[in-house]
Design a protein around this nucleic acid. Structure first.
Lengths: 139, 139
DNA sequence: ACATATTTGCAATTGTGTTGCAAATTTTAT
DNA sequence: ATAAAATTTGCAACACAATTGCAAATATGT
């Protein structure tokens, strides 16, 4: 099962270690985005807090995961659907945060619409986060 | 000069204090959004860290300022253009963050477009942040 | 299998935000 | 204008999140 994950690490020129395999595996099986705390809790063999921070940072730099700009300023991460270029993300999809179960989901197929900015502004990247009830939680 | 600011405080049933006048004044004269740290630095008569936190929180509850969901998960505040209802914000404008000077600006006239969500998702609120170069910084 | 390079875990440190409480300030009623 | 009541402030202490330096452990390339 973890062969594919190992390959992903190798393809990105990273050493294959237990922590990395375990964390990447979590992302592949998670229902939505993961926060540092989620990973810390779920890790079966305890992984050091610091290692988790460093792993997330490395994954992000390599373009394997991306951070999600939530409205409540908490930090969550999710897999980049298509590999992003190293040091350069290009995922322009909308993110959804459920107000009830607080699951955070990448809507890979919904991409952020363009907006017309006032004169002089030069846009590089747009982020959009929608809050509401997810399909599991709406009554 | 601060008469208008005093009135705003009174209108919202808040005691008129030096810290509040000073902080509100900063917002009225700031070029963009302010972070807690900005206020702490700029305050001429030093205002206690805790007082700043509490003042920002109160202003937000009263609908005088709103938080801005930046992509880097830092917390910034800006004036609500029209008074928001107490405990209920209704500003649906796009925010712009400059990648060079990192000024954060409310684009009051650009409002967040609707997006079509997948089946089952029930949206309540949308936030959009655009990064790029502001009118002062584009070359 | 060994030497080299990378990663990990620990301890210590920094940063951010919160809470309780007494002193100071503001408001309200007189 | 003054005194009592209510609110706000500043300080100390705390809780939690995140970063750094460094030695020990693990992974890689030959």
């Amino acid at each position: 099962m973890s062969e594919a994950i190992k390959d992903l690490l190798k393809k990105n020129h990273m050493s294959v270690t237990d922590s990395r395999l375990q964390i990447l595996d979590m992302f592949y099986h998670a229902p939505g985005a993961l926060a540092h705390a989620d990973i810390e809790k779920k890790a079966s063999d305890k992984i050091d807090r610091v290692t988790i921070y460093r792993t997330l940072q490395t994954f992000e730099e390599k373009g394997i995961i991306h951070t999600i700009p939530t409205a409540d300023n908490s930090v969550k991460y999710a897999l980049c659907k298509d590999q992003c270029a190293e040091g350069h993300h290009h995922d322009n999809h909308v993110h959804f945060v459920c107000d009830k179960c607080s699951k955070t989901i990448c809507l890979d197929d919904v991409h952020v619409p363009e907006v017309k900015l006032p004169k002089g502004f030069q846009p590089h990247q747009s982020n959009m986060v929608v809050n509401g009830f997810c399909s599991d939680c709406r009554s």
